[in-house]
């Protein structure tokens, strides 16, 4: 039985096509689900095994990226979302979807799934939106089910507000200890593993995120969000420098993340 993936859409979400495609490539069955169909109960989250909030510019990023869509979910879908997460189903938010998960308090989150915001994604230090490629490294100790067994991937970042910060510095240590700071920007010239806390220079870190954080998971490891776009590197010919590389064409470096989630559901 193929896992069913609810790929949310509407209000300026705009990466749903490729997000559906990568789940299909990974062996799942993906459906585009307008947020309002969940709110008015035409569709039910509980009918799906994975939820994905794709990238985009929900509500034009006005009043802060992800804020208004986060509020729609926090106020309109609170119980459905909590039930989904507490029942052990994987959730991913990519770029704007990550911003939504952070603003609604699902990431970095807490054991109670209290939906209290504790971190944020601030404007890049450059002050503007950028599309450029970055190299990510994953914490092998993390409980994150999405990144299990992955070391590094190259992916595009496409955002103006991706600087991961919090106003309680002790939380950074706590999240680090629990393996929640799972994805970090690294210098591709270094060898694995090399993720560090000292902010890397621009543009290796495109946004001057604290501790070079590119993505985080919740304490359970089921909810994962990241600013870069793994779904945009689903095939080798989408890489930034593929024409310079001797490679056998096939799946791109971003696909491992989606395979992990599908495998997790199939093994559950």
């Amino acid at each position: 039985m193929e896992p069913r993936v609810a790929v949310l859409s509407g209000f300026g979400i705009n990466c749903e096509t490729e997000t559906m495609a990568v789940f299909e490539m990974a062996g799942a069955s993906a459906e585009r689900v307008h947020v309002n169909r969940l709110v008015n109960e035409e569709a039910r989250l509980s009918d799906y095994q994975i939820m994905a909030i794709p990238g985009g510019f929900s509500f034009g990023d006005h009043l802060g990226s992800g804020r208004l869509l986060g509020n729609r979910l926090r106020f309109g879908l609170r119980e459905q979302v909590r039930e989904f997460v507490t029942s052990g189903k994987p959730v991913i938010g990519i770029c704007n979807g990550f911003q939504v998960l952070v603003k609604m308090g699902l990431l970095p989150g807490d054991d109670e799934v209290s939906l209290t915001q504790t971190a944020s994604l601030a404007l890049n230090d450059s002050g503007h939106y950028e599309n450029r490629w970055a190299t990510l490294e994953f914490d092998p100790e993390s409980p994150c089910i999405w990144t299990e067994g992955l070391d590094r991937i190259r992916v595009p970042v496409r955002h103006g507000e991706g600087k991961f910060v919090t106003d309680d510095a002790t939380l950074m240590d706590k999240w680090a200890d629990s393996g929640q700071l799972v994805a970090r920007y690294v210098d591709p010239a270094t060898t694995y593993p090399s993720a560090g806390d000292e902010p890397l220079p621009y543009p290796i870190s495109p946004n001057q995120s604290w501790r070079n954080v590119a993505g985080v998971c919740d304490p359970s490891g089921l909810v994962f969000g990241l600013m870069p776009h793994p779904e945009a590197n689903h095939s080798t010919w989408l890489g930034a420098t593929w024409t310079r590389e001797d490679l056998v064409h096939g799946e791109g470096e971003g696909m491992g993340i989606f395979h992990n989630a599908v495998r997790n559901v199939l093994q559950a």
């Binding site: 096509t17 490729e18 990568v22 939106y129 599309n131 496409r158 689903h234 989408l238």
Partner: peptide, 8 residues
Amino acid sequence: SYDHEVIA
């Protein structure tokens, strides 16, 4: 600062 990769 233009997104040139959305739609993958």
